[in-house]
Measured scan of single mutants.
Amino acid sequence: MASQGTKRSYEQMETDGERQNATEIRASVGKMIGGIGRFYIQMCTELKLSDYEGRLIQNSLTIERMVLSAFDERRNKYLEEHPSAGKDPKKTGGPIYRRVNGKWMRELILYDKEEIRRIWRQANNGDDATAGLTHMMIWHSNLNDATYQRTRALVRTGMDPRMCSLMQGSTLPRRSGAAGAAVKGVGTMVMELVRMIKRGINDRNFWRGENGRKTRIAYERMCNILKGKFQTAAQKAMMDQVRESRNPGNAEFEDLTFLARSALILRGSVAHKSCLPACVYGPAVASGYDFEREGYSLVGIDPFRLLQNSQVYSLIRPNENPAHKSQLVWMACHSAAFEDLRVLSFIKGTKVLPRGKLSTRGVQIASNENMETMESSTLELRSRYWAIRTRSGGNTNQQRASAGQISIQPTFSVQRNLPFDRTTIMAAFNGNTEGRTSDMRTEIIRMMESARPEDVSFQGRGVFELSDEKAASPIVPSFDMSNEGSYFFGDNAEEYDN
């Protein structure tokens, strides 16, 4: 783990906690998980779902989305002020799938948001429990990260689609708070800032007046979040320049895209947490497990152990491969979309394939898809080993990566060399080191050039047997250095459309 220093740990961010010791953190995270579980059980009762239907990941996603929508204050306010045809701002819903006479049927349900809020609060001892809501947002974000390569979004903001390893959390809503900021990748933060800068260039009043003052505060806050992700002084200094700019424009845009590229080699610290679907927490609570009393951590053995003992089902389209669908969801559960496939294969105990080789589309089923041909199958979400999630980018030494994705962002704290394609990355730096950030740029390029592919990161860190909950005997895996390590390699994943 990167030293926490003055930073709060993510469990504290996750639970809005002030400084807590490890036991208190485990208890408050457990409380959050228990609340999600209780809410899910109650919703299944309301909807009269069978046990099997309640364990269907598509039903879980609909129920999670309903509660997130019920608590989305800004959108609710907007919907009330701008009524649109056929949208009731006070209601929320989605597809629920039921097994009827041996076939899967889709039923569109509609609930009062007020009623959903009441059920959620009741499951969370009367609190709004925003930490639990954020947790579900991060699960949705991790699922998107594993399912889609955001080529269009990258290109629109002047970045290269091969930089997708920097895009963790790119679909997280803005209201996801400190826990959300911690899991956002460098590219995601750059993209958010670039969008602001572009608006400022096109709209003279963007930075002016009372609204402009708020915009400015948001801009500086985002700059500080991004600065905190960088691990070298030169990158941090460049972020200070971007933040202090009187009138952010093209120079800042250039600096930010430069920094994003540099992060492929001088990786930023991005938190990883295993956020599971509500249909995993519900049955665990129903079986009598007391998360608050037992304590829970999002970055240790607990999620692995929970998945070892969970039964989750998914709808499967006619030509999809259930094992591939399982891999997709497994990666999402562990926030591992940008991790090295060699490491993932070792931990999972079966070969993890790149996205383009998977015969599976996303987990969600569109409303126009034919239910007649839908089957369902068990998702295999178990693992051979477990490993500690990392909050750091690993040290800054790398190795060759593949054509589709030119770097990785480690999820697990496991000893290995970190793949990246130096030639491709360095070719993108057209040696432009003039301007006010020239000395920093020169320094950053120097550090990137001296990074050695064969150097090892996370020295001495290994994986653990599932029986080793105290992480007492690390097993340090050895990897084939020459092997392909990137998930979005030469990829044809669908595009994420909101």
Rank of each mutant, 00 (worst) to 15 (best):
H140G: 13
D128T: 14
A146C: 08
D439K: 07
G126K: 09
A336C: 15
E53R: 00
D145M: 08
P161V: 14
S60T: 14
L49Q: 00
A27K: 12
M66A: 07
N368C: 14
Q235Y: 04
R208F: 07
R293N: 10
G180D: 11
L276V: 12
S478K: 12
Y313Q: 06
P318M: 05
I138G: 04
A401T: 11
D240N: 11
V476N: 00
A332Q: 00
M481H: 03
T45Y: 08
L264M: 15
T424E: 02
D497V: 11
L143C: 12
E254V: 12
T134W: 00
M159L: 15
P322T: 10
A427S: 11
I408S: 14
T350M: 14
L108I: 13
F412R: 00
N250D: 09
G435F: 13
T45H: 08
C275I: 08
S486M: 10
Q231S: 10
N142L: 00
R199L: 07
S50W: 00
D439R: 01
S383V: 12
A179Y: 05
R293Y: 15
E192I: 05
V463W: 10
Q405N: 03
I445F: 00
R74I: 08
Q58C: 01
G86S: 11
E495Y: 08
M167T: 09
M191N: 01
P283M: 13
G177M: 07
K113H: 05
T15P: 00
M447N: 05
I36A: 03
F39C: 14
N417D: 15
R400L: 07
A27Y: 15
S60D: 08
T360P: 04
G268F: 03
G300N: 11
A428P: 07
M239L: 05
Q459G: 09
S274Q: 05
P277Y: 05
Q168S: 15
L226P: 10
V155S: 07
R382S: 10
T360S: 14
R162T: 12
T130N: 06
G212H: 05
I96E: 14
D240A: 06
M13F: 02
V363E: 01
S176C: 15
E375P: 08
A233W: 05
V194L: 13
E252A: 08
A22Y: 04
Q308P: 05
W139Q: 03
V242Q: 06
S3Y: 04
L193S: 11
R117L: 14
M43A: 13
K31L: 09
A366M: 07
W207D: 03
L276A: 10
R305I: 12
S84F: 07
D145F: 02
H334D: 07
F458M: 15
A271N: 15
T423H: 00
I138P: 00
M137W: 08
V476H: 01
D51R: 00
E484N: 15
D127T: 09
N21A: 03
T147D: 01
D455L: 15
G435L: 07
R74S: 10
L110D: 08
N397A: 11
S482N: 11
R342W: 15
K31A: 15
S376N: 15
G268K: 02
N125A: 13
R355V: 00
Y496E: 04
F429M: 12
G30T: 01
Q20S: 13
V343T: 15
T62W: 04
G5E: 01
Q231R: 15
E434H: 15
H140L: 15
I444M: 13
Y148Q: 04
M43W: 05
S367I: 02
L298F: 06
D16G: 11
D88A: 02
T92N: 14
S274V: 02
D88G: 10
R246Y: 03
I119S: 10
R150G: 10
V280Q: 01
E495D: 14
M66Q: 08
K7L: 00
G169E: 06
F258K: 05
S345N: 10
W207S: 06
K229G: 05
P303E: 03
L264W: 06
S482D: 10
L47M: 15
M159S: 00
V280L: 11
R204F: 05
E449A: 07
M13Q: 13
L306I: 15
K325H: 11
Y385A: 13
A451Y: 03
K7N: 11
K214S: 06
K87N: 10
G86C: 05
F71M: 06
R26A: 03
F304I: 07
M238I: 09
Q42I: 05
E80C: 14
N247D: 08
I444Y: 08
V194R: 00
I347A: 09
Q122V: 12
N21H: 13
G185S: 09
T151A: 09
G93Q: 06
G180E: 02
R174S: 11
A181H: 11
K91Y: 05
R118S: 12
L344D: 11
R389N: 09
N483R: 04
T424D: 01
P453Y: 06
A278R: 00
M448F: 03
M448E: 12
E46H: 14
R221M: 09
I301K: 13
G17S: 07
G404E: 00
D491M: 14
I197C: 02
R317Q: 10
P248F: 09
R38M: 15
R195Q: 02
A284D: 07
A263C: 14
S262L: 02
R361M: 04
R293Q: 12
G187P: 04
V67K: 07
G349L: 04
L47K: 01
I36Q: 05
W139P: 03
R261M: 10
H334S: 00
V312D: 00
G169N: 13
A286P: 11
Q327L: 14
R361N: 04
D455Q: 06
S287C: 11
C333W: 04
C44D: 01
L49E: 05
P248K: 04
E484L: 09
Y40W: 10
R384M: 15
K87E: 11
V343S: 00
L133M: 14
P474Q: 11
W120S: 12
A85N: 04
L266T: 10
K214F: 12
I444V: 14
G102S: 15
G187M: 11
S165V: 02
Q405L: 03
N430H: 15
A401E: 14
I347V: 15
M447S: 08
P89M: 02
F71S: 14
M159D: 01
D455Y: 15
P248A: 06
T257G: 02
S438N: 15
D302C: 04
N395M: 04
I96R: 02
R391L: 09
M239R: 02
R121L: 12
F479C: 10
D255S: 02
F488A: 03
M239V: 15
E244M: 06
V352S: 05
K236C: 14
D160S: 02
S473L: 01
L344K: 11
M1N: 12
D421R: 13
S60I: 10
G17A: 14
A403I: 04
V363W: 03
N397D: 12
S84L: 07
E454S: 06
L68G: 13
I316L: 14
N492P: 02
K90S: 04
R213T: 03
Y289P: 07
T411D: 09
G490N: 03
S326T: 12
V285G: 14
K227Y: 14
V352L: 14
M196R: 07
N211L: 12
R305S: 13
F464P: 02
M447D: 15
V343M: 10
T157M: 14
A284P: 07
L133D: 03
A427D: 02
Q58H: 10
N430L: 13
G282R: 00
M66I: 13
I225Y: 05
Q415H: 11
N498L: 08
C279L: 14
T92C: 09
R384A: 05
Q122I: 13
S473V: 15
A284W: 04
M331H: 07
R156E: 03
S262N: 12
P410M: 03
V456Y: 07
I475N: 14
S413R: 10
A218N: 05
R121V: 14
I201H: 15
C164P: 08
V270W: 03
A178D: 10
Q12N: 10
T423A: 13
F304Y: 05
N144M: 13
T437Q: 13
L56P: 04
Y296E: 03
R422G: 09
E18R: 01
I225T: 14
A70R: 01
A332P: 03
E465G: 13
Y289L: 14
T390Y: 13
Q327K: 10
I425E: 08
G462E: 13
T15F: 00
T390E: 01
L466Q: 13
D88M: 06
A366K: 09
G460D: 01
Y487A: 04
F230S: 09
